[in-house]
């Protein structure tokens, strides 16, 4: 997904002279093909996130579309005020490509795991918050970013994530994707949790429960129309996210239901409000948090 995202920046740079890449201090050779083809639109500016966001804002004020890339925790927490003031207050078309959303960097510990990125980005006016499910959807999504007038936060998965989105999807920011129609219960997911929810739906089918999956590649703007229709049609909603239970997709859905006075029962499956205190792999930590297909299915059966 990350490689696809960066490859697409290069592709967009070929299509549009306004596209610029700005990295901090990425792994050696990152996006080398673009650096060679467009050396004047490729910036690698060191471990200085605050300055880089300002630089991207200045470029955007004068007509460029900067795609900024570094690790998710650093592009959010480290330079939050620059993101808020330089990008969101000025409402500039800067894209923040965040490596390792959620638990991807499990072996590297809590400084590198972005478990509150969706919450803090979602709280900023003008910011779009996105987490696609797979590399194929990433291609379609990146094309849609070119002419979006506002800043976009782009959460990346680990890479090699199972492809679950349909090839004929027309990507629109703010639109959800129904991956499986729901009857008894509807999973509402974002990012790579779509595949886990589909796995859980298969397990629930063995128990005679028909579960569907609505995938939200954009957590903000939220697809209110599809969600409200779903909440009026199915008896139960279950949000599933690789994120703190505070402020992310589950919170967004809860806010929508409350604001529309809908009594549909909502179960929020997410990470606990604590820093991850184990290593291993993303899969391992998801399993510990009950966010693997089996854990998700069990939570539904228990609720």
């Amino acid at each position: 997904m990350r490689e696809t995202s960066l490859r697409m920046v290069h592709e967009l740079a070929r299509r549009d002279p306004r596209v610029v890449f700005v990295g901090s201090d990425l792994g050696a050779g990152a996006l080398d093909a673009m650096r060679q083809e467009f050396p004047d639109r490729f910036y690698m500016e060191g471990v200085s996130e605050a300055a880089i966001i300002g630089l991207a804002a200045g470029l955007a004020m004068d007509g460029y579309i900067p795609y900024v890339n570094t690790i998710a925790t650093f592009i959010t927490r480290r330079c939050y005020e620059q993101v808020a003031v330089d990008l969101c207050l000025h409402n500039l078309p800067v894209r923040l490509i965040a490596n390792g959303g959620g638990l991807v960097y499990a072996p590297l510990g809590p400084t590198h795991m972005a478990i509150e990125d969706l919450a803090i980005m979602r709280a900023l006016p003008n910011m779009a918050v996105t987490a696609v499910a797979d590399a194929e959807e990433m291609k379609r999504f990146m094309l849609a970013t070119l002419d979006y007038p506002s800043p976009i936060y782009i959460r990346l998965g680990k890479g090699g994530d199972k492809v679950v989105t349909p090839a004929d999807q027309v990507f629109t920011l703010g639109k959800s994707v129904e991956l499986k129609p729901a009857k008894d219960v509807a999973f509402v997911t974002t990012g790579v949790m779509a595949s886990r929810a589909l796995g859980a739906a298969a397990l629930l089918a063995e128990h005679g429960i028909e579960a569907g999956v609505l995938h939200m590649p954009t957590v903000k703007p939220l697809d209110d129309v599809a969600l409200l229709a779903l909440a009026r049609r199915v008896p139960r909603l279950v949000t599933v996210e690789e994120h703190s239970r505070i402020g992310g997709l589950g919170s967004a859905v809860a806010e929508l239901l409350i604001d529309n006075r809908l009594p549909t029962p909502l179960l929020r499956l997410a990470l606990p409000d604590s820093f991850p205190d184990d290593y291993g792999s993303q899969e391992h930590l998801l399993e510990v948090a009950g966010l693997d297909p089996k854990g998700i299915a069990q939570s539904v059966l228990k609720s």
Binding site: Y43, A50, A51, I52, I53, G54, L55, A56, A57, G58, L59, A60, M61, D62, G63, Y64, E81, Q82, V85, D86, L89, H90
Partner: peptide, 21 residues
């Protein structure tokens, strides 16, 4: 040219504008 008030933002934006020019 830029909304300021929070300190330490102007030079970063200025660097971007100078590169753009």
């Amino acid at each position: 040219e830029a909304s300021t008030g929070a300190l330490g933002h102007g030079l970063g934006i200025g660097v971007g504008m100078a590169l753009a020019a």
